[in-house]
């Protein structure tokens, strides 16, 4: 009986906090925290966020609740994260597309300056793979062939103006090549077309490429990183060919600007512990996710750098501000 009363009291206290905002930042969190994922349930970003919410229970007193708000390539959910009250009860996953790329196309009501970066969770590395029946089967072959046949190599990506599209155009730009970028409706459609030999190359993440590579459906030829990666030790990186280009898409946890300092500290600390948690790391690894924890400041730096790179490529593609009202 007594505990029931206690619970009721706690609930009442929580409600009071909810409506009056009287709970101070030092008590944070007094109620569940909502995490907005700007993509549909079931995708890589969503599942990562759910694993995060499951793990962070250990380090925060209140649960995290994942809420999906897809649409507009992630801009709708991102906009509602950034326009939420900065009290630490509405956070979101900050992904590269909506933060560093979409603002350059125009038609979104936020910019990268509105973002409070809390912690980088992980990155999706970009792999260029040669498809069934492609006229090349390694990086050098690709570079030579593309140079001899400008604009002929058909490279599939996950969607027009998306991270994989920008990755390929950026690489081509840095290497002085011209390719034919073909936007499919999602990575899996592009990889399928590649395995079926309907295109010459595809840009996708290691998790998407590896199972097919093991089956001989396609051949990873280039990883767009600075250094070779563990899961593809034999696949070279652009710098080995004197090409200065690295690109990956990423996701982390963001909040609207103006969080109270104490709240920001509590969250950053809990996120750091979560992203270094053994359980979290092993689950993410099984799912093929590449965890790369970085602090809020390092996260911001990465986002701003990519935003600049993307802007240059988007301008070159003639897509800058196309959706501006």
């Amino acid at each position: 009986m007594k505990t029931q009363w206690m619970n009721a009291l706690a609930l009442a206290a929580g409600m009071t906090g909810l409506f009056t905002g009287s709970a101070t930042a030092a008590d944070y969190p007094v109620r569940p925290i909502q995490v907005i994922v700007p993509y549909s349930a079931g995708g890589g970003t969503d599942l990562s966020a759910r694993i995060m919410a499951d793990t962070i229970k250990k380090y925060l007193d209140k649960p995290m609740i994942v809420r999906n708000q897809p649409g507009g390539g992630g801009s709708i959910g991102t906009s509602s994260i950034l326009h939420a009250r900065p009290d630490g009860y509405t956070l979101g996953t900050g992904a590269q597309g909506p933060l560093a790329m979409l603002p350059h196309y125009g038609g979104v009501d936020y910019s990268i300056d509105d973002v409070e970066f809390l912690a980088l969770m992980g990155r999706n590395l970009m792999v260029l793979a040669a498809c069934q029946g492609a006229p090349f089967d390694d990086a050098q072959g690709f570079l030579d062939y593309a140079e001899a046949h400008p604009g002929e190599v058909r490279v599939g990506n996950s969607g027009a103006g998306g991270a994989n599209h920008i990755a390929m155009e950026g690489l081509a730009n840095a290497a002085g090549l011209e390719v034919k970028s073909m936007p499919f409706g999602g990575s899996s459609a592009a990889v399928t077309a590649c395995v079926g030999g309907h295109i010459d190359g595809v840009v996708a993440s290691p998790a998407e490429v590896l199972p097919q590579a093991d089956n001989g459906g396609l051949e990873p030829i280039l990883v767009m990183e600075d250094k070779r990666i563990d899961v593809l030790p034999d696949t070279p990186v652009p710098s080995e060919f004197g090409i200065d280009f690295a690109w990956s898409s990423w996701k982390g946890v963001i909040a609207p600007k103006g969080l109270p300092e104490a709240v920001k500290k509590t969250l950053s600390e809990a996120l750091r512990k979560t992203f270094q948690d053994e359980d979290f790391l092993s689950r993410m690894k099984d799912m093929g996710e590449f965890v790369d924890y970085r602090t809020g400041d390092a996260y911001r730096e990465l986002a701003e750098k990519d935003s600049k790179t993307a802007e240059a490529i988007i301008r070159k593609l003639g897509m800058y501000g196309v959706n501006q009202q």
Binding site: G73, Y105, A160
Partner: peptide, 20 residues
């Protein structure tokens, strides 16, 4: 919604909710 090849918004009348 977004043109599948160029990514440009079509007939959305500036309403971002119709972007896809």
């Amino acid at each position: 919604g977004a043109d599948p090849i160029s990514g440009i918004s079509r007939y959305t009348f500036g309403i971002s909710g119709f972007a896809s």
